[in-house]
């Protein structure tokens, strides 16, 4: 029985894609976000990204040594994870906190589950969730990109003070949309600019690394539900981490379903959960928890939406 399970799940198609090629393409797609974060929040952002990447690579090496496996530090998966952890951090956080988070994400969420390809949860999101529970105050203290004082994120203002305050804070609807789209707003390092995330996402689409099913079903569900509940769907899409989550984290090959239909179900689930958390919980943003919960549901989705076996109906 155990031997049978060693066969990986379908599809067994051969492609020219190797893990390093996929991972380094993702790194290229993430680079504009990093450059923008450094431009927006200063050199401290570069330091945070460097710390996360270094911790991720070192932890991966350490865990592979401990588990007596081949070192695969050049395949880029640790670099991607490190950059994604950094993208999920508030720009003013103390430098040592990301070390703890990245270590937990890499060591526990990835290697305790068996390493690349076996992890149930997205390691970068586990790092974020762990830090959010461990240092709630640090993880929700935001600095303004304009004058480096502490302030609230657009979603924070929306939650605490309502949509009217948000509009007046950014000087009208059009100005708010423009700020959210360009990204000169307070928020996590890599989540502010919807424009650059979209550019990176389209790049990944064109290179065939991801498909449109998860991001589109995710974003469409969130927009529709927000619209039906009387909210502004454009703000819901552009503000917060949902863009970053939909394009770069929900699409993680390991922790999302195999089949197209499964991926659409996965995206709808993410959108529904994000909407529910934003609307009804105490948190202003719910992207990371939504994706983690759907990660847990992925094996179930794969079971109910399996690949059609070739030659059958």
């Amino acid at each position: 029985m155990a031997r049978l399970l060693h066969v990986s799940s379908s599809p067994h198609l051969r492609t020219s894609d190797s893990i390093p090629k996929i991972m380094w393409t993702v790194v290229i797609a993430l680079l504009p976000l990093c450059v923008f974060a450094v431009w927006l929040f200063g050199w401290y952002a570069a330091l945070l990204i460097a710390i996360c990447v270094a911790t991720a690579v070192l932890t991966e090496g350490l865990m592979q040594k401990l588990r007596k496996q081949k070192l695969t530090l050049y395949d880029g998966s640790a670099v991607v994870m490190g950059i994604l952890v950094a993208c999920n951090l508030p720009p003013g956080i103390s430098w040592w906190i990301p070390i703890i988070g990245t270590f937990v994400g890499m060591a526990i969420a990835k290697h305790c589950y068996g390493g690349l390809g076996y992890n149930i949860f997205n390691p970068a999101l586990i790092a974020r969730a762990f830090l959010l529970a461990a240092y709630p105050k640090d993880m929700t203290t935001w600095i303004s990109p304009v004058d480096a004082t502490t302030c609230a994120t657009p979603l924070g203002i929306l939650k605490e003070r309502g949509p009217g305050e948000l509009l007046s804070a950014y000087g009208g609807k059009l100005s708010l949309y423009k700020h959210l789209f360009i990204g000169n707003i307070p928020g996590c390092l890599g989540e502010t600019s919807a424009l650059l995330i979209l550019a990176g996402g389209v790049f990944l689409l064109l290179r065939g690394i991801i498909t449109w099913h998860i991001p589109l079903s995710y974003l469409a569900t969130l927009a529709l539900l927000t619209f039906l509940s009387g909210g502004d769907p454009i703000i819901a899409l552009l503000a917060g981490g949902v863009m970053l989550g939909a394009w770069f984290m929900a699409t993680d090959l390991v922790t999302s379903p195999f089949t197209r239909r499964g991926q659409v179900v996965f995206g709808i689930g993410c959108g529904l959960l994000t909407f529910l958390i934003r609307r009804f919980s105490g948190y202003p943003e719910g992207t990371s928890y939504a994706i983690l919960l759907m990660n847990a549901a992925t094996p179930l989705i794969d079971r109910y939406f399996p690949n059609r076996i070739y030659g059958t109906r």
Binding site: I100, F130, A133, A134, Y135, P136
Partner: peptide
């Protein structure tokens, strides 16, 4: 790491 005294 406050989460260590919580259930997780």
């Amino acid at each position: 790491i406050a989460v260590m005294v919580l259930a997780p």
